[in-house]
């Protein structure tokens, strides 16, 4: 990503400005770190661009949706995923660059799973990409543990009283993927069609899978 284009910078300066638009203080501090580490030979700027491109354009919730759709469709895959998600998703090319373990947790009529990181924002990047802002907010991180049903209600998810809610607290070492319940009326749908019903939020547990 070029630093020459800053699409989200406020553009309220006059075009008579003699100098280039000055980046924000944190943006300048990041540039300083990058320059220093590059000069010391500790980082490769091309590798930074590759990482950004990967997370902006190549990795996202479609990866997780592929895993869930296959789990819904293929009993052997489902069994393997529940037994050792790290191995199964790694084989699909979705492996954790930070070496973390993946655990799949499955929603059933008796239990609904929801994922949080109370420490910071640990998240299954290879399967879901970069977490949304709300996942990183204090409000979600505190409330998901304390009052998960209220949080779910804020997301429009109201569960029957007999469904227990289980909250999984991610760590740097273990990341969770929620396998939402397969909706009724999806018999006979192939994996690609099923994927369209599987949102990012449904794999965090703050939504249900869509209906066809």
């Amino acid at each position: 990503m070029g630093w020459g284009s800053l699409p989200f910078m406020p553009h309220d300066h006059s075009h008579d400005d003699p100098h280039a638009l000055l980046p924000s203080d944190p943006a300048l501090r990041v540039k300083a770190l990058e320059t220093l580490l590059t000069r010391k030979g500790l980082i490769d700027p091309a590798a930074l661009d590759e990482i950004i491109d990967t997370y902006e354009n190549k990795i996202g919730p479609r990866n997780g949706a592929r895993v869930v759709a296959r789990a819904w469709s293929d009993p052997d895959f489902h069994a393997a995923l529940m037994a050792d998600a790290t191995a199964v998703v790694s084989e699909m090319g979705f492996y954790g660059r930070q070496g973390e373990h993946m655990v799949a947790v499955e929603n059933r009529p008796e239990v609904h799973n929801i994922v949080v990181c109370t420490l910071c924002s640990c998240y299954p990047w290879p399967l879901l990409g970069i977490p949304p802002g709300w996942y990183k907010s204090d409000a979600y991180r505190a409330r998901a543990v304390r009052e998960p049903r209220k949080v779910l209600a804020d997301f429009g998810v109201v569960l029957p009283d007999e469904t227990a809610v289980r909250v999984w607290d991610s760590t740097a070492e273990i990341r969770y993927l929620v396998i939402p319940q397969r909706p009724d009326g999806t018999e006979g749908m192939n994996e690609d069609a099923l994927m369209d019903l599987i949102s990012r939020d449904s794999m965090i547990g703050t939504a249900l899978a869509g209906t066809p």
């Binding site: 990503m1 800053l6 990041v30 540039k31 990482i51 950004i52 997370y55 660059r97 949102s199 939504a207």
Partner: peptide, 22 residues
């Protein structure tokens, strides 16, 4: 709660500091 896919990073420097750390 967002229902549509948003940008991974709100600002370029967020992406840059993330990538630097990774």
């Amino acid at each position: 709660a967002p229902t549509v896919q948003e940008h991974a990073f709100e600002e370029p420097w967020h992406a840059q500091v993330f990538a630097l750390t990774v």
